[in-house]
Amino acid sequence: MSADPNPHPTEPDVRPHVYDGIREFNNRLPNWWLFTLYATIVFWVGYWAYYEWFRVEPEGARSVELAMTRIDAAKLAATAAVNIDDKSLWAMSRNPVFVDAGRQTFEANCVACHLKSLRGKSESPTAIGPDLTDQIWIHGGDPTDLYRTVTQGVPAKGMPTWGPVLGPKRITEAVAYVLSHHKEGEPIVIDTSVSAPAK
């Protein structure tokens, strides 16, 4: 069909280099293959115009930076969204939605030491955790004290650091559940004898 233009059919067009006795024909690349090269050049022009010339979107490092800022902002917002002052914690402790959610968290995580009744050592001397229903507190009895104690834990006594495990929302709910067994303004006794390092 097509006339072969090679005037010396017995002498094929071979590139000058030889590697391990292997030589390479100087055949033409397929046109469609070259077209992919031209297409990448066209793409590069568009890409350059998009990111560098008109700066439609931030490129590379800058876009990563922006994304990281957004992630940080979202994390900060999550902690900021939790209102942890005494007044709001007391308010939550009277809200059945919060108390019920808190009860579930408490029953999954806290009953091993404080028992389902929350009465801990008062109910059973072999229990590990103190009574959370009486008015005697060891590490402070204000709602924010409770929140801090749960979040940071008391590692020396075995109260775990629940902050990274449960997160602020579930801790707030669990504190609201504990507070639902108390009344705002009830007399509080801080028992310093127990907070001294145990033997």
């Binding site: 069909m1 097509s2 233009p5 090679n6 033409r28 397929p30 046109n31």
Partner: peptide, 20 residues
């Protein structure tokens, strides 16, 4: 098949790079 395949070239790529 009005072409003669040879081992030195790919049959489906003509000498000018166009597709056979």
């Amino acid at each position: 098949s009005p072409f003669k395949p040879v081992r030195d070239q790919v049959t489906t790529i003509r000498e000018d790079g166009s597709r056979r």
